[in-house]
Simulated scan of single mutants.
Amino acid sequence: MINIKFILNRYKYFLISLLICIAIYIFDNNLGLDIFDSTKSNIIQMLSILPPVMILLGLLDVWVPREYFMKYMGSNSGILGIALSFLIAFFAAGPMYAAFPFTAVLIKKGVKFSNIIIFLNAWCVTKFSTLLFEIGALGYKFTIARLLIDVPGVIIMGYIVDYLVNKKK
């Protein structure tokens, strides 16, 4: 039997957003159509990115033993774990939402929480494709200056978040 209360609770934010979009469409057809076109475009983009990511993550999960992740990125990994977190993020491709399934695999494999936070932040600020674009658009001096600020900031943030999360436990 379908539990309507569970479904409504689970998808409440989606349903609220949908109702708001419908209300906007009723009051302004053009804006409503723009919203639905943008949503359709985003869904198509996600559906083109996530399946290959999930396949690669499934292979990674099966092929790379947990012990490797724990040895190189686990609680005793030190600078090597930080470097690997940056390296994986540097060569990553795709938007930020593609990082979250990978993060789930890292958690499952026993990676130190600070390295996971470093990975997520590094995904945002140190991806190779983003750096190339930034150098072309803003120049290498700006990019290097930003990296000199962001890289230590990402590491510090990873350890602060790790401390705060573990402090609550």
Rank of each mutant, 00 (worst) to 15 (best):
A98H: 02
A23G: 11
A99G: 04
F90G: 03
M46F: 04
V165I: 14
T103V: 11
F91W: 05
F36N: 10
F128H: 07
F128Y: 09
I16Q: 10
L84G: 06
S85V: 07
L15F: 12
F113E: 06
A104C: 10
K12L: 08
A93G: 06
F119H: 06
I135Q: 01
L106Q: 03
I82N: 00
R146V: 15
I2R: 13
A145W: 03
A23P: 05
A83I: 08
V64D: 05
L31H: 08
L147V: 07
V53T: 10
I156W: 04
L147F: 09
V161P: 03
I118V: 14
D34M: 12
P152R: 15
R66A: 07
I82H: 01
G136F: 00
S114F: 00
F119M: 08
F128K: 08
I43N: 01
P51S: 05
G158Y: 04
N3V: 12
N166G: 12
A122F: 03
L147S: 11
N29F: 10
F27S: 15
F133N: 08
L87I: 04
L50C: 00
A83H: 00
F113T: 05
F119W: 04
N29T: 15
G139L: 14
L59I: 15
Y11Q: 07
G58H: 02
I20N: 11
R146F: 13
Y159A: 11
A122K: 02
G81N: 04
G78S: 12
V53R: 01
T39V: 11
F69W: 05
D61F: 06
R10F: 15
M1K: 10
L87Q: 01
F128P: 02
V105S: 02
K71W: 04
I24P: 07
L8W: 12
S38R: 08
K108M: 05
F36G: 07
L57G: 00
K108T: 03
G32T: 15
I43A: 03
G32V: 15
G78K: 09
A89V: 04
L59S: 11
R10W: 13
T130R: 06
S48A: 09
P101Q: 12
A92V: 01
A99L: 00
K108A: 09
L31Q: 13
M73E: 00
A89W: 00
K108W: 00
L31N: 12
G158C: 10
I43W: 00
C124S: 14
I4D: 05
V151C: 13
L120S: 00
Y25G: 11
L56E: 03
I79V: 13
D28F: 09
V125T: 15
V64F: 08
C21I: 15
F6Y: 10
A104V: 09
K167P: 02
F36M: 14
Y68R: 12
S38Y: 10
F100N: 03
K169E: 09
L164P: 10
P95G: 14
L106A: 06
K169C: 13
I156V: 15
L132G: 12
D61M: 04
L59F: 07
I107M: 10
F100M: 09
V64Y: 05
Y13M: 12
N30F: 08
M70E: 10
F119L: 08
T130L: 05
M54R: 05
A92T: 02
Y140L: 14
F113C: 02
G136I: 04
F69A: 11
W63V: 10
N29V: 14
